[in-house]
């Protein structure tokens, strides 16, 4: 763009003023993003190649030590595997509970559709702290589920401060993202294919499995990508429902940054989150290619 600017300016005097104007109008947003986004991210990458000394001070010499330490420490390797597996499980569960809703909204019209859209988007805009606290009220020892179970003489079960609580809560937190992605994918679905299948004598279930589901695979892929990356990096829900007893990437980043004050370790773990993001994105691109 910068290379083209002088050429344009010479060629046409009219063109010069819009480009100068554009630069001027973009200046404020460029400054904000330079200070609050670009500089911090570059600095984060730089810090992942520093290390903490025995006393906890930052040693500002380029080194692979922090990366190597984490790559060879079974605590961190187990944490990465645990985070990935829990996130995959959450993604699968989110898909299962979201698909019926997305399918129903796609099929409904008028006021019912509008109400359903409001009911799906409202939780999305509600603070994660609030929604997670709702899960504390449902899952804790004195919560809804255990109090209901005690009526029939069962329980109490430990549903909170462990991986179970995180899976139940985070699945619900991610549902709106999955539903919106699925609905974006349903745009490709043509009702006439299903009608054709039904009129040719296929059962509704068979029509769903052989016509509807394959056509909505791109939406499923998008929703799964989105939910997986959000699950990997989620902090509030794992912290409140895990009670500091389940060690995941995001909770460990916060712990290292705020409690242990080992910034290079926190920086490397953040980079690992971004690498997992990149891997998920590559996998998504390949899945999409295979679907085409």
């Amino acid at each position: 763009m910068t290379a083209a600017a002088p050429a344009l300016a010479r060629g046409n005097a009219e063109q010069r003023s819009p480009l100068a104007l554009a630069a001027l109008l973009l200046l404020p947003i460029a400054i904000v993003n330079a200070i609050g986004f670009l500089l911090p991210i570059i600095n984060l990458l730089k810090l992942s190649f520093y290390q903490s000394s025995e006393t906890g001070a930052l040693v500002e010499i380029f080194t692979f030590n922090t990366w190597l330490r984490i790559a060879t420490d079974t605590f961190y390797i187990q944490m990465l595997v645990r985070t990935t597996l829990i996130s995959l499980l959450i993604t699968l569960l989110t898909l299962l509970v979201s698909y019926p809703i997305a399918f129903f909204i796609y099929r409904s019209t008028g006021a019912l559709r509008s109400i359903m859209v409001v009911l799906v988007i409202s939780p999305l805009l509600t603070s994660a702290v609030v929604r997670t606290y709702g899960w504390v009220a449902i899952l804790s020892e004195q919560g809804l589920v255990n109090n209901l179970l005690s009526f029939i003489g069962a329980g109490p079960y430990r549903l909170i401060f462990n991986a179970t609580g995180i899976v139940i809560g985070l699945t619900e937190i991610l549902m709106p993202y999955m539903i919106l992605s699925l609905m974006a994918g349903f745009g490709r679905l043509d009702h006439r294919y299903e009608e054709a299948s039904l009129s040719l004598g296929a059962s509704p279930l068979r029509t769903f499995l052989t016509v509807t589901l394959p056509l909505t695979l791109p939406g499923i892929a998008l929703g799964c990508l989105l939910c997986f990356v959000i699950a990997v990096s989620a902090f509030i829900t794992p912290q409140l429902l895990g009670g500091g007893r389940v060690f995941l990437l995001a909770t460990e980043i916060y712990h290292q940054a705020i409690v242990t004050l080992n910034w290079p370790v926190a920086a490397v773990l953040s980079m690992i989150v971004l690498i997992v993001f990149g891997a998920a994105l590559a996998l998504y691109a390949r899945a999409l290619q295979a679907l085409e």
């Binding site: 609050g36 911090p40 600095n43 995001a250 980043i253 916060y254 940054a257 920086a267 953040s270 989150v273």
Partner: peptide
């Protein structure tokens, strides 16, 4: 960008 990474990156700067 995940907010946990963004927050940490801003903290350090």
């Amino acid at each position: 960008l995940p907010t946990i990474v963004l927050g940490l990156a801003m903290l350090m700067v």
